[in-house]
Design a binder for these strands. Structure first.
Length: 289
DNA sequence: AGAGGTACCTGGCAGC
DNA sequence: TGCTGCCAGGTACCTC
């Protein structure tokens, strides 16, 4: 990430563009649910239907009059359940949701408003439009987008044993392996870099050539880094009402991500930055083998 | 089947 | 100053 040679620029960038990783999605769920649960949708306004996929045609009619039962999360998908179907929301790379208590004129990237009988509005904003807003009438777990997903990282199913078994015979780099949503969901680029550093595993190592013991460390670190972020998102829950709808981010100090060329916090060695699958990987050649 | 690459999209920086 | 090129990233999908 050479563009951010100056740390303050990097910080400014991430204040502006908080990539919703799993902790941010969960924090968003917790932030909005109390305001929308049991409310009835009175009106839906779609200003920009061109997201990752087109917003489901007829979404406005489908949602009007529906009462929201609960908001669940599967991987980075938010599932807004009503009596007759489920609204599936993905925040993509730059999406956010917030609750408006007062009417506010829509800004450039405010693509969708969901008005509630309380007078509140749930507003979806997404500058890069990598997000999604889909209406499903079938069981969301059976939808192609959700059907093939691996276990939640914080579920006990995700363990060293699971990763070890799943990786046998695989030559793919471990970093790509843990970012594959068929293996485990919710491990984005930032947390993949961090978890590999914390467990001392070289990001390019073949997934099939890592011992059970090391996978136990990796599973533990994935859980730890995500759980800590969710915890902090919860305690710093800021401004889902009226404000920018973005959870506090990066409360925990990043060990490697965004620090290519800087000294390793553990050993002082200069951190290496490479690209894997068009994504930035940062690691310590000394600490990670 | 597995591995790797591509596309989608915008804002902001570097460099000319 | 203004333009162009590049880059960040999640994830489905394409190709080999």
């Amino acid at each position: 990430m050479q563009a951010f040679s100056d740390p303050s620029l990097f910080a400014a960038f991430y204040q502006e563009f908080q990539v919703p990783e799993l902790p941010e999605v969960e924090t968003t769920r917790r932030g909005i649910e109390p305001h929308i649960r049991h409310r009835t949708i009175t009106r839906v306004i779609v200003r920009q239907p061109r997201l990752r996929w087109p917003v489901t045609p007829g979404l406005e009619q489908a949602l009007a009059g529906q009462q929201i039962r609960q908001v669940r999360r599967r991987a980075k998908y938010l599932l807004v359940e009503t009596g007759s179907g489920t609204l599936v929301i993905h925040l993509g790379m730059s999406g956010s949701l917030r609750i408006l208590k007062q009417p506010q004129p829509p800004q450039k990237h405010d693509h969708i408003d969901i008005q509630l009988d309380s007078g509140d509005v749930l507003r979806y904003t997404d500058p890069r439009r990598f997000g999604a807003m889909l209406w499903l009438t079938e069981d969301p777990a059976e939808h192609p987008l959700l059907r093939e997903l691996g276990p939640e990282p914080l579920d006990e199913v995700l363990s060293g044993d699971y990763l070890f078994e799943k990786s046998r015979g695989r030559s793919i780099a471990i970093k790509s392996f843990i970012m594959d949503s068929h293996v485990v969901v919710g491990v984005g680029n930032i947390y993949a870099n961090e978890a590999l550093f914390l467990s001392g595993i070289h990001p390019q190592r073949a997934a099939g050539r890592i011992s059970l013991q090391r996978y136990q460390a990796l599973a533990e670190q994935i859980k730890r880094v995500l759980a800590r972020s969710i915890e902090q998102g919860g305690t710093t829950l800021r401004d889902f009402v009226g404000g920018d709808g973005k959870p506090g981010y990066f409360q925990q100090t990043l060990q490697v991500y965004g620090r290519g060329g800087k000294p390793c916090r553990a050993c002082g060695e200069t951190l290496k930055e490479i690209r894997q699958g068009q994504r930035s990987t940062v690691y310590c050649g000394q600490c990670q083998r």
